Simulated assay, not measured.
Amino acid sequence: MRQMRVLLLKNKTAQLDNYEVAFKSNGYETFFVPLIAHTHVPEELLGLINDKDYVESLKNIVVSSQRTVECLSESVLPKLNSATAEMLLSKTVYAVGAATEEFLARIGFKNVKGGKNAGTGSILADLITQDLLEQGQEAARDSEILSLVGQIRRDVIPNKLSSKGFKVKEVVTYQTVNLEDNLERFQKVVSPHSWVVLFSPQGTEEILLELKKHPDTKIKIASIGPTTEKYLNENGIQPQVVSPKPDSNSLLNAIKLSEEN
């Protein structure tokens, strides 16, 4: 019996990709189809962190993407002296999703919050608000929160935090551009009955048009969460699976449950 094929429309995470581990260990044939290229832009962040007064006063960091963690791991931490690196790694970091939380812990951050309990930016913003206000209202609002983001991002976290009176400083850590041959690389590995997993709308336009042209191929579509599901619906596609949380085990279990029914 042929292995079920899963196409992950994402860049493979550096060091360890939890999606590959989860699906391969459960007998799936996995393929990564990167749709976008990431470029680290660490300069502004390095300028801040190398300011001793700033890094000493910094208490809380927000990280919503594994791409930011890659920038920290590959383009920021190696350029810091040991004392500054240790100081940065001691800061409280609020993360979106379990995979981002795990990646932050692997590169040395000692106090990571949210993560598996905050699968979306909106949930994380509520968690941060509750957590910081419990520490004391005035102190929490006097301290600036450093939010590390990509050039293309949604504004849910800073908008919610700002509406509660918190100061948020956004610093871009990476840029993204669509790759030119997304459809061609997708067509080389897709097959009938494949699962196609979307992690983000970016770079998927041609692939969605192709899927809509051939509705009889029995290809099944999974969305990593409600934002991508909404994008699919707006483009006339209803995914068979929406992962209840944006992590590998939730996605795997949702797909396995769908196959059983």
Rank of each mutant, 00 (worst) to 15 (best):
N235G: 09
I152V: 15
N11F: 01
G136Y: 03
K91M: 10
N253H: 08
E210H: 11
R2V: 07
S25T: 12
T100E: 04
I207F: 02
D247Q: 08
V62P: 00
Y94S: 06
P34T: 02
L72R: 05
S57H: 13
K91N: 07
P158K: 14
P78H: 11
F31G: 01
Y54I: 12
T173G: 07
Q240V: 02
P78W: 09
E259H: 10
F109T: 01
S250W: 09
V189R: 07
L8Y: 07
K218Q: 15
V171Y: 02
A22D: 11
L209M: 10
G150C: 03
L252I: 03
E259N: 04
N26Q: 08
T30R: 06
G108L: 05
P239H: 08
S250T: 09
Q3A: 10
N81E: 11
L35V: 00
E138I: 15
K113F: 12
P201A: 00
S248Q: 08
G27E: 06
L183A: 01
K164G: 02
T227F: 06
A125S: 04
I237N: 09
P226D: 05
G165M: 05
E229C: 10
K113W: 07
Q187N: 13
R2N: 14
I219T: 08
L45Q: 04
T227I: 15
Q151D: 15
S143L: 13
K213D: 14
R153K: 15
P78A: 11
V62M: 06
N26Y: 11
E259Q: 12
I107N: 05
S122I: 10
V156M: 12
